[in-house]
């Protein structure tokens, strides 16, 4: 057994972390849970109908990687990200487009993954919170949230960061009002809003420098 130094709790080390275990378990399920008939690639032959019992073969561009998947038409992008690809950074909140916990970028724009069917996301560039990392380094917006202590329980944080990232990619120097509007689709039950606003300001400054 390699020695566990206990210094870090990420799946990059040799030890098996809880999160790493859960992601691996999720990815394994993806391979075995194919029971339906396999239909054509939606991206290429969209016109043919996929029945509710069918699985559609699709390719999604997620964080710059082409992910080939078998999906049911009813599966949301959120479900596919978390339960089929193990990208658990995107959170499940209300699942009805009201809370923002599942915010991802689609073609650079913030969207709710719970309100997007996976079959509708083909041909688009999807960015999740995991896609903001530079290797093991946090991205600028993530770093700003860390520095500004812009969370309490942290559950809404990935969604908040993705909303901020989406806002700043379009407008790297937003006014206070534009930040309030840009972040209005994300709820924080802990009420960390003042720190979140600070973090967006700080992330904007990092991006401009």
């Amino acid at each position: 057994m390699p020695e566990n130094t206990g210094e870090h709790d990420c799946s990059c080390g040799k030890g098996l972390t809880r999160r790493g275990f859960l992601s691996t378990a999720g990815a394994t399920t993806a391979l075995v849970a194919v029971s339906g008939r396999i239909n054509v690639n939606v991206a290429q032959a969209a016109a043919s109908e996929i029945t509710s019992e069918d699985m559609a073969k699709i390719t999604l561009d997620i964080n710059g990687r082409q992910q080939r998947l078998l999906v049911e038409p009813r599966w949301s992008l959120l479900f596919v990200l978390r339960d089929r690809l193990g990208l658990s950074g995107t959170k499940v909140g209300c699942e009805r487009g009201e809370c923002g916990a599942c915010t991802v970028l689609i073609d650079g724009r913030p969207r709710y993954a719970c309100m997007t069917l996976a079959v509708e996301a083909t041909g688009r560039k999807i960015t999740t919170i995991e896609g903001l990392m530079n290797g093991e380094q946090l991205g600028q917006t993530q770093q700003a949230f860390l520095e500004e202590d812009a969370y309490q329980c942290g559950y809404c944080t990935p969604g908040q960061i993705m909303a901020a990232e989406g806002l700043l990619r379009i407008n790297p120097d937003p006014t206070s009002e534009q930040i309030a509007t840009g972040m209005s689709g994300n709820l924080c039950r802990c009420g960390a809003y003042p720190h979140i606003i600070n973090a967006v300001n700080s992330a904007g400054a990092k991006k401009r420098n």
Binding site: A46, A47, E49, S52, E72, P73, W75, E120
Partner: peptide, 12 residues
């Protein structure tokens, strides 16, 4: 999870 449905995305 949504209830099941069939899906089509016509090009015309």
């Amino acid at each position: 999870m949504l209830p099941g449905f069939s899906y089509t995305r016509p090009e015309t």
